[in-house]
């Protein structure tokens, strides 16, 4: 069970692990935009090299990254095939009689699959090397400017932490209720669709009741302990911005400028 979400964070001691969550979040969001700058073989090559360096620095075993690709491999192949057959530009590479594969189609297909691959790798590295709690902490600081427009940043961050805390609990609960109802003879995976849908109701009722009860208990506990919002609260975990955080952001900016100059 735990391996589904928290297994995605792998504690470690690498360069990327030690970075501040704020710089990692900024880096990934900027990278998503920068990826779209590339449009020829040279710029895609630079991007790919950059991604590989980040993977090496994170010391994440390639196995984890490849494993994370499984759900999207179909999507990638679909994209590739779509472009292979739909784009009709440039010289013909293969003539199958009923279908022709053009150079431009192959090129576009490979480019877009690569772009997708790099996006998936980069975001996986973020969640693999940063614990959910530091992600929340980082987001809270990054969202701080929005306090000016009355966005309740502290409350939102607290809600995120509470959600993260309760995901495994509620997953266990769902699992338990599912097994309990199966023991009573409910079958979610067989039979006509109408029956399967009906079987969902006895699953959701106890789940909702227990979740709302948890929320109520939690609210009571918070009030009893004197929770009064973010005003004047201090933090147990303090974020520290190091030189290496500045370095990776500068590296990204340099690469972005390079891509912009070399794009066709």
């Amino acid at each position: 069970m735990e391996k589904m979400i928290f297994g995605r964070y792998i504690p470690g001691n690498s360069f990327v692990h030690k970075l501040d969550p704020r710089s990692k979040l900024l880096f990934v969001f900027a990278f998503i935009i920068v990826v779209f700058f590339a449009n020829n073989t040279l710029t895609y090559g630079i991007l790919l090299a950059f991604t590989l360096i980040v993977i090496l620095l994170s010391k994440i075993r390639l196995y984890f990254l490849i494993n994370g690709l499984k759900p999207v491999i179909f999507l990638m192949l679909f994209t590739l095939i779509l472009h292979l057959f739909m784009t009709r530009e440039g010289p013909v590479l293969v003539d199958l009689g009923f279908m022709k594969i053009y150079e431009e189609g192959l090129r576009q297909g490979v480019y877009i699959s690569m772009r997708f691959l790099m996006l998936v790798f980069m975001t996986s590295i973020l969640t693999l090397t940063t614990s959910p709690i530091s992600i929340t902490d980082g987001l809270e600081v990054l969202l701080n400017p929005f306090k000016k427009i009355k966005l309740p940043v502290h409350e939102l961050a607290l809600m995120m932490s509470i959600s993260l805390r309760f995901i495994p609990t509620l997953m266990d609960e769902t699992d338990k209720i599912m097994k309990a109802q199966m023991a009573r003879g409910s079958d979610l995976s067989a039979g006509p669709i109408k029956d399967r849908l009906k079987a969902v109701v006895p699953l959701l009722v106890p789940l909702f009741i227990s979740a709302f009860k948890r929320a109520e208990d939690l609210a009571t506990a918070m009030e009893v302990r004197g929770y009064r919002g973010g005003e004047g609260r201090t933090k147990y975990r303090l974020l520290k911005w190091h030189a290496k955080d500045t370095i990776i952001l500068v590296a990204l900016v340099i690469m972005a400028i390079l891509l912009w100059m070399l794009r066709g």
């Binding site: 409350e155 809600m159 995120m160 309760f166 979740a211 929320a215 109520e216 609210a219 009030e223």
Partner: peptide, 15 residues
């Protein structure tokens, strides 16, 4: 923001 609203929203999100 009331504490109960905060807690319930967080649990809904978790669910």
């Amino acid at each position: 923001m009331k504490v109960k609203f905060l807690a319930t929203s967080a649990i809904i999100a978790a669910l």
